[in-house]
């Protein structure tokens, strides 16, 4: 059998604050998203999720220098480490873990098409602006957002899959941190044996925007 390539896939949830900040990292001049009253609860659950993920990654005993990290929302821009650093400072456990792995020799790769991310940001902003009008108005716009989002997600996933295949070096293992709505595995499972790392995904705590 020819070379078998493994891939580590970590499905993740982001707090609403994290999602906002990840997308905002592309738009330096925008104001931060409004604070959510249940933020503390969200953050606690997501922190636990990341602690569990961290432990499981350590248990894989994969040598860090052979890991190439691909991150949901990380644009291809040449400033990936900087962005990770900034988001880690803003308490993103996701990016704190990335920095940790980078310190141990892992590599971080720009993952997403910046234009597609900006389009996602615009769609999300539009949806959130409806929420400031009324919950009903938000709910009405949700279907439109979902449709646009699904189409955009396909484009994002196609870009990410190609990005992984073209940037991964010989002997390296890709480590993916991807929000749960991505459908990347469909594009990768014929090239890689996918191993999932799942500890817990606190859906209700994080209040997935689809379930308002």
């Amino acid at each position: 059998m020819t070379n078998i390539r493994y891939l580590i896939y970590v499905p993740v949830l982001h707090t609403q604050k994290e999602t906002g900040e990840i997308l905002l990292s592309l738009k330096a001049d925008e104001a931060p998203p409004p604070a959510d009253t249940s933020l503390a609860e969200q953050e606690k659950s997501v922190k636990e999720m990341w602690d569990g993920i961290h432990e499981k990654i350590q248990n894989t005993n994969i040598s860090c220098p052979t890991i190439r990290i691909y991150q949901d929302g990380m644009p291809v821009c040449g400033k990936e480490k900087e962005i990770a650093g900034k988001l880690a400072q803003k308490s993103s456990r996701n990016h704190q873990l990335i920095l940790d792995l980078l310190k141990k020799g892992a590599n971080l790769e720009g993952t997403e098409d910046p234009d597609l991310l900006i389009e996602e940001y615009d769609n999300l902003s539009h949806l959130i602006s409806k929420a400031s009008v009324s919950i009903q108005s938000y709910r009405d716009s949700l279907n439109e957002y979902k449709e646009k989002g699904a189409k955009l997600m396909k484009q994002r996933d196609a870009f990410i899959a190609e990005r992984i295949k073209s940037t991964l070096k010989e002997g390296e293992t890709p480590l993916l941190f991807m929000g749960v709505r991505h459908e990347l595995e469909k594009l990768l499972q014929s090239s890689f044996v996918i191993n999932y790392i799942i500890y817990r995904l606190p859906f209700k705590k994080v209040r997935d925007i689809y379930n308002v």
Binding site: M1, I4, Q189, S190, V193, I194, Y196
Partner: peptide, 17 residues
């Protein structure tokens, strides 16, 4: 065939897990 093998290997590895 290789893609099929990869997919099958993935399934096997998942099944084993």
């Amino acid at each position: 065939v290789q893609a099929g093998k990869m997919y099958a290997l993935g399934q096997l590895s998942a099944g084993a897990a």
